[in-house]
Amino acid sequence: MPDLLTHAPDPVDPGEAADAREDERHIKRHVNGKFLIGAAVLTFMILFAIFGPMIAQFDPRISGDNPVLAPPDSTYWMGTTSLGHDVFSQMATGARTSLLIGVIAGLIAVTLSILFGVVAGYVGGVTDEVLTLIIGVMLVIPGLPLTIVISSAVPGRSGLLVAVILGITGWAGAAVVLRSQAQSLRNRDYVAASRIAGENPFRVIGVEVLPNLLPLLTGQFLFGVIFAILGEAGLSYLGLGPTGSISWGTILNDANSGYALQSGAWWWFLPPGIAVALVGMSLALINFAVDEVINPKLRSAPLEARRLRKAKAEKKAIAKADKQAAKDEKKAEAQA
């Protein structure tokens, strides 16, 4: 930068080259930044879920002699609830439940979206019609209400059951995308070539088509996990989450029914809220980074927007200068 200031502005070429180089560096930093932040936060959360319960000093379910609604201190790192439960222990146990439900539900959703989307797109014909109909129905049924109906119909819900419920209500959107991708891949020459070689349809889908969908599937899995974690928190908050187990959603639910907000016990409802938000954010960031790898257009989009702004500003400046020049000219004429 100082170079640019001290030296007289060179003719266009070197400056532009430097610009391009900076753009390139910018792109790299951009991608890495998103991915790094996302991965760091996610790793922290996973480590917390693994080791948190080990370092927690109290049983999350037993209040014992704990003080009630104690603010965070050296003994109770995140304070206690209105019943005297240690919030840190609950958060640690809850992390396991929430993340596990998220991953299981994400896996179920991806599997279902492959089964419906890829098969519909690849096979085509009547199979496609039927599967697309099912996908369409699942797509227009609003997810959370359906989840609520199913959850309230089943007594004694385990964490696994909640994960299954979230999985089977959250796959339709991904299936639509996979279907159209599979339709495009079906017409590739290499798929025709493997059919001509005599491969059976299952192998063609599994070995020739699916690997090329892998980046897309990664994104969808991450999105599925976000959906499930948020969904679980929502269900638990409504009292429809896994019964008998502790998750971030159940902590929020307890905080709500324990009047945490009214009594100013911020340490009770903030940690689970922030944790859910952080996990969602980290997965979304990783998802964005993956998206940018799949679709390079996304990577250059912010850059293009900035270039456009720059060009517009320059145009404005030029127009202003022109106007000023015209004015000056008129003035000079008038004086003459």
Binding site: D189, Y190, A192
Partner: peptide, 10 residues
């Protein structure tokens, strides 16, 4: 098209 007839993944 030799660019389309081989699977980029394999």
């Amino acid at each position: 098209d030799p660019f389309a007839s081989l699977n980029p993944f394999h």
